[in-house]
Amino acid sequence: MSQLDLRELHSTEFPVPADMQSNVAITSLSKIYNWSRRSSMWPMLFGLACCAIEMIATAASRYDTARFGMEVMRATPRQSDLMIVSGTVTKKMIVPIVRLYNQMPEPKYVLAMGACASGGGPFKEGYNVVSGIDQYVPVDVYVPGCPPTPQALLNGLIALQKRIDGQSLGNMDDVPWYGVGPSDPVPVPILGPDIIDPRQMEMIRAQAERAASGESYGTRELPAAAMDVIAPRTEAAARPAQAPAAAEVATDDPDRAEALRKREEALARKRARQAAQNLDS
């Protein structure tokens, strides 16, 4: 248990005699509000995968989140302030996760723990894996690692506390739950042939119409120079194997141009070799 030290709350503008400083503090409403919120941040008892094990280890005696007032893990979203997304988010699991998030009362925070929750991690390419929880619910703090060590998670929790310290009751954008009321619930995804995000319904409809009329599904536009490189590669399987000449490279720096040109040549040689092997076999 952290001991209450009133000096933490003290605002320096208002002088308090030194011998009274441990008894009296003059402070702002925002400060005491944030201080009490950050010191009783209750996480949801909610483990997804490997990171959950490290989360439990963080809560256990050696690392001890009770030092930050975070030891009260609530098994229901309705009593919790913080969702620690500890592990790989799958398409099948995102539906319950969004429901849980919607049930949390505001102010609510989300901490993406580990590589998977932040962006898909080592399993990103998997057909049942969501590339990061932030595709569906807003995230306040990302903690890298696979899994993050307990120290890293503690660092993330402290980062979250700092974030809370920065919020001000005077600015309603900071505390929208008092200003404009609770935020809208995140639409719950649908498990169809693949996961369907209701927010993308218009886009899916437009693409399906394209497909129905015989056109191919659209692809995303990247910067033109990048598309030049990608376009041949995405069609590479259909294209007859031949060694492309080293492409012209546009850059101002001569050293960099030279390096890129050499790289292109090496790649061209590699492709030619592969093409020859393919012909052999």
Partner: peptide, 16 residues
């Protein structure tokens, strides 16, 4: 995800 029109790890069958 940059090559996927939806920006997500999804693909839908043509007869959706």
């Amino acid at each position: 995800e940059e090559l996927n029109i939806y920006g997500k790890n999804v693909k839908y069958p043509a007869d959706l």
